[in-house]
Computed example of a mutant assay.
Amino acid sequence: MTGYAEVIGDPIAQSKSPAIHGYWLSKLGLDAAYRAALVSVEGLETYLASRRGDPQWRGCNVTMPHKQAVIPLLDRLDPLAARIGAVNTIIAEDGGLTGYNTDARGFLEPLRSRLAKQHYFRMARIIGTGGAARAVVTALADEGFTLVLAGRDAGKARALLDELAPGGEHHAIDLAHFADETDFPFDDREGCLDLLVNASPLGMAGQPPLVYDFSHTPPGTVVYDVVTDPVVTRLLAEARRRGFSTVDGLSMLIGQAAAAFEMFFGRPAPRHDADMGLRALLSP
Score class of each variant (00 low, 15 high):
Pro18Gly: 15
Lys67Met: 05
Ala159Tyr: 09
Asp75His: 12
Ala81Val: 14
Gly22Trp: 01
Tyr47Ala: 15
Arg76His: 13
Met252Gln: 11
Tyr23Pro: 00
Arg125Lys: 06
Glu169Cys: 08
Gly96Phe: 15
Ala5Cys: 07
Pro79Ala: 11
Asp248Cys: 04
Ala172Phe: 13
Val223Cys: 07
Gly96Arg: 15
Leu74Arg: 04
Leu38Thr: 06
Thr246Gln: 02
Leu74Tyr: 13
Val222Cys: 10
Asp273Phe: 12
Gly167Tyr: 13
Val211His: 13
Ile84Cys: 12
Asp10Met: 02
Lys27Asp: 15
Gly168Gln: 11
Val136Met: 00
Asp94Trp: 03
Leu278Met: 12
Thr217Asp: 08
Val247Ser: 02
Val148Leu: 07
Ser215Asn: 12
Leu175Pro: 15
Val226Asp: 02
Ala239Gly: 05
Gly131Lys: 03
Ala157Asn: 04
Arg112His: 11
Gly9Ile: 05
Leu140Gln: 05
Gly255Tyr: 04
Gly106Asn: 14
Leu140Trp: 12
Val222Met: 10
Tyr212Ala: 05
Ala116Gln: 14
Gly206His: 09
Val226Trp: 01
Asn61Thr: 05
Pro230Asn: 07
Glu42Gly: 03
Leu210Asn: 07
Val227Tyr: 06
Tyr23Met: 04
Ala104Pro: 03
Ser17His: 08
Thr233Ile: 01
Pro268Arg: 13
Gly131Glu: 02
Ala239Tyr: 01
Pro208Asn: 03
Pro208His: 05
Glu45Gly: 03
Arg267Glu: 01
Tyr212Lys: 08
Leu250Glu: 15
Gly59Ile: 14
Pro185Met: 03
Gly206Met: 13
Phe244His: 14
Arg35Ile: 14
Val62Thr: 08
Gly191His: 05
Gly43Cys: 08
Pro201Met: 01
Tyr100Met: 07
Leu160Asn: 09
Gly243Glu: 11
Ser200Leu: 09
Arg114Ala: 14
Ile20Glu: 10
Glu143Gly: 03
Glu262Trp: 00
Leu164Thr: 14
Ala172Ser: 13
Ala5Asp: 07
Phe186Asn: 02
Glu42Asn: 05
Met204Leu: 12
Pro110Ser: 00
